[in-house]
Design a protein around this nucleic acid. Structure first.
Lengths: 321, 321
DNA sequence: TTGTAAGCGTTATCAC
DNA sequence: GTGATAACGCTTACAA
């Protein structure tokens, strides 16, 4: 009665009697016992492989988390969260899986060379990656980073910019950083502009890295006429660097970001940026994981969500994209 | 052997044999079984009572989360996270407790009139509140909001400001918002300045509310010469409103925020703000909860952390506090 | 120092 | 329709 089993062969009277008594007794099923007997913990884990302080600044992550929490609630699951440093990712999350503490895993930011991933595959443990990992046989959810950046950089070119600098969102060891850089190259090439390694800098998730790299870019002569920054959070630091030296945005230098975090419209100036559906990414990551757990067939092993460029004041002209 | 029991009366040889075989077999204890037998799930939950989108913008929350994750790792616990809308807070987290899914609860943002809190008390369930709740018999972790704001506003007064506006961090139904407003009044009173209800506006966690309330404040004539905003995130919106109408900060209007979120130094201009030790708050919330779970006596039922004013460009003169 | 058995609170299966 | 009983994989207490 309590579990609403499908093949219910129970008289309505008994049913009500059970329900009533359960309520009267304040009965709540014991989660551990359920998990033990059913071999399902009804919880999943979000594992973020990142330095903690880099998590703290990442409002994109928070938005994604919201989507996950929402999905988890609709599927009646619990969300466990773990943040582990890139160094000791060894088996940190393996224990979660092996101990059956969770039914599935959502991994954000692991790298290809992670040995633990291999173990996950061998045990056929339900896992969804945030961001694609080449050659990894995992379900993943992502956006087309390369195309999204190409489109945004093309916009800058269309506005007349020619010396377009680029700051990555993260070290180049991260797949997303590589993809975004490729998108930048694509756009340059398409416009017949030469790629200049010297206009590229490497951010590291936080504003401080953006500040530093932008300062470095500003020493170049002639100065870049615009800059694409592959993370809004990093862009916040870069903006500060430009303000520091009295540059006007976009008159002196145009800026385009990536992620469209919630404060992007409130920055000074409001930031033109590539919009990512953060919440939806989180939501569908959970959805995919649920299917995996239920052993249903996934229509798509790698889902890609749409992005679009949001034009605000930081890049000048209010052109339609 | 595996559990490293205290009264260990085991020959070193056997010990090694056990350890070795366990490793060879790839043995990992089943979490559910452990939880069932020991009546301890070794996990705790963080419950945030807030609209999801308001969580997404709140980088202060993220910083606190970091501290919690760190503490949870040192105590070998797991962290479950739940975000529930203020409306149906009814028993949402009660089930977590009653089902013994978690050993303890950290509650952020609940209000006094929450009936579920009462149940928690009755069942004597280990619970720590983020922020104090008057009359609630719960352990809590907080800062002295009132004194912190008073100090910051006093700083503005010392700089010569007289028409100091105030924007709350949240609706006044929140205790923290009330306390901070009281601190503002304290400072005014101490300086012999009249409190003017008309200079007070109510923020609502996000930048949009700050933008809106600041716009409203700017219609006042004569214009306020400064504004204290009881949340950096809300302040981001307020800054945008000031930029919109071409005000120079701090020349035309001085701004002081609250929280000292990680991007505060990178705002334009860098934001003077009350520093809260977000990570430490999170960390010690977990520590307190652990003591509660272990049934140890808490030295202090209500712990208050220190704050200090961080002077940056947004308030003008670079005075020592 | 080692071995044994009861019990934790469910689920799942099968007999009635 | 309903009731009984064996797992589930540990912890804990106690016997050897």
């Amino acid at each position: 009665v309590l579990n609403n089993v499908a093949g219910a062969q129970i008289s309505e009277e008994t049913r009500q009697r059970v329900l009533l008594t359960a309520k009267r007794l304040g009965y709540v099923p014991n989660a551990a016992a359920q998990a033990l007997a059913s071999k399902r913990s009804r919880s999943i884990a979000l594992v973020i492989v990142r330095r903690p302080y880099q998590v703290a600044t990442d409002s994109f992550l928070t938005q994604m988390l919201n989507g996950m929490v929402s999905a988890v609630q609709t599927y009646q699951l619990r969300l466990l969260i773990d943040i582990i440093e890139p160094e000791h990712q060894e088996k940190a999350y393996l224990e979660l899986a092996r101990a059956n503490r969770v039914d599935g895993l959502i991994l954000a930011g692991p790298s290809n060379d992670d040995a633990a991933l291999q173990t996950l595959v061998e045990h056929n443990f339900p896992t969804v990656l945030i961001g694609e990992l080449p050659d990894a046989p995992f379900a993943s959810i992502d956006v087309d980073n390369r195309a999204a950046v190409a489109k945004a950089v093309a916009h800058l070119i269309r506005l007349g910019h020619r010396r377009i600098a680029f700051i990555t969102n993260a070290p180049i060891s991260y797949g997303a950083a590589r993809e975004r850089l490729l998108g930048y190259k694509d756009a340059l090439e398409l416009a017949g502009l030469a790629f200049d390694e010297y206009l590229v800098r490497y951010g590291d998730f936080d504003p401080e890295s953006g500040y530093r790299q932008m300062k470095s870019l500003l020493t170049i002569s002639p100065r870049p006429d615009s800059v694409f920054i592959a993370s809004d959070v990093v862009a916040i630091g870069a903006l500060a660097a430009m303000h520091d030296v009295g540059l006007r945005i976009p008159e002196d230098i145009a800026v385009v970001g990536y992620d469209d975090i919630l404060i992007a419209p409130y920055l000074h100036p409001p930031l033109t940026t590539v919009h990512l559906p953060a919440g939806e990414l989180g939501f569908s990551a959970v959805e995919m994981l649920v299917q995996l757990i239920r052993q249903e067939n996934l229509e798509m092993l790698h889902v890609r969500h749409e992005t679009h460029l949001v034009i605000r004041a930081s890049c000048g002209a209010n052109t339609i994209n």
